[in-house]
């Protein structure tokens, strides 16, 4: 019964992300593919990829909360907004064009907002957490409209092209977005992806998963439930703000639409589409969403209907998302070989 080593080598079915490094490999594959994409893809495709990088970063944060901690936020677009409006205010109102400074500001502001908001929200779970975050998201959206003079209300707020590492670039907007900014945003995704990988595989990340699985039991094993949840909330807000800053630059605008609750819904959609149960799933979901959105919108005016139908089918037939399907395919392939 106890021939440990041999049994252990064979028996490790469906291990969660923590025990296997495949999530990092998958992320690396995506990053390398994206780095090579400018060699083959059209300019149009490349302009689609920049928002994908923004969403991917935001989704890595979103999923720390959703997939790992078990808290489904319906207000996460708020933090996209924090990043976007920080970018707009700094570049167009305050004349600060260094994107590094913009990012640092976005990070600081999002953390400052996430602390009190998170402090209130993480005391609740399930639908109550979702409703509270939704409410805060709506509140934030309405505040944007209240301060029309600063934020431009529904007009949004222009974003001036930022300096990357202090350097301006020649050429038009498209050249900037598909050239230097493309690689800059991709680099951010790679770095923040690696950092998130470290986080989810740390003892802290393990405590998050223990909280998701059984908060009461976790507390008796010394897990500081509220404090750990709050830390996850703040980290995910920071990732959201960085993603939002990238989105704002790619659109050239801090758009109130980006903060609206439907955008929070899109984040949930992307995470579920890709599979919130795996590390890289939401990133894949972000890519799939951007491509789907683009092609479905080009093909039919009923794109919302088509996207909704896809979500329904997915939840019913493939609850583990694209990453889950891919995992099954890989597993079957391995078994066959």
């Amino acid at each position: 019964m106890r021939i440990e080593t041999s049994v252990r080598a064979v028996a490790s079915p469906a291990a969660p992300p923590l025990s296997r490094p495949k999530g990092l490999w998958a992320l690396l594959v995506i990053v390398v593919a994206m780095a090579a994409l400018p060699l083959i893809a059209s300019t149009y495709t490349l302009t689609l990829m920049v928002p994908f990088f923004g969403f991917a970063i935001a989704l890595l944060g979103f999923n720390l909360l959703f997939g790992y901690t078990g808290l489904l936020s319906f207000g996460h677009a708020m933090f996209l907004g924090v990043g976007a409006y920080a970018t707009a205010v700094l570049t167009s109102k305050l004349g600060v064009r260094s994107f590094e400074l913009v990012l640092l500001t976005a990070i600081a502001v999002s953390a400052l907002i996430a602390l009190p908001v998170g402090y209130l929200c993480v005391r609740y779970t399930r639908i109550f957490f979702g409703m509270l975050t939704l409410a805060f998201g709506m509140l934030f959206h309405s505040i944007l409209f209240k301060f029309y003079g600063l934020t431009g209300g529904d007009q949004g707020m222009r974003v001036v092209r930022p300096l990357l590492f202090g350097m301006d670039s020649a050429g038009g907007k498209t050249a900037f977005l598909t050239g230097p900014f493309y690689y800059y945003a991709l680099g951010l995704l790679a770095v923040l992806g690696f950092v998130m990988w470290r986080i989810v595989r740390s003892p802290f990340g393990l405590h998050l998963q223990a909280i998701r699985e059984n908060a009461q039991k976790a507390s008796y094993l010394g897990v500081q439930v509220s404090r750990t949840r709050l830390a996850a909330f703040v980290i995910s807000a920071i990732y959201g703000a960085v993603g939002g800053a990238i989105l704002a630059v790619s659109i050239g605008l801090a758009d109130p639409e980006m903060v609206y609750w439907t955008q929070s819904g899109n984040l949930v959609f992307m995470a579920v589409l890709g599979g919130s149960g795996s590390f890289v799933g939401p990133v894949i979901g972000g890519l799939a969403f951007v491509l789907l959105h683009d092609s479905v919108m080009a093909a039919t005016q009923y794109w919302r209907f088509v996207m909704g139908a896809i979500l329904v089918l997915l939840v019913i037939f493939f609850p583990r998302g694209i990453a889950g399907i891919a995992g099954d395919v890989v597993a079957r392939f391995r078994k066959g070989s």
Binding site: L18, P203, F204, H207, Q216, L221, G222
Partner: peptide, 23 residues
């Protein structure tokens, strides 16, 4: 009272990590 999706190793590590102040 367990963590269904965590492995045995992870479950025990939850407690060890708190005891050894790894958070």
């Amino acid at each position: 009272n367990i963590f269904p999706a965590l492995t045995v190793r992870e479950t025990l590590a939850v407690a060890a990590a708190s005891r050894l102040k790894r958070i």
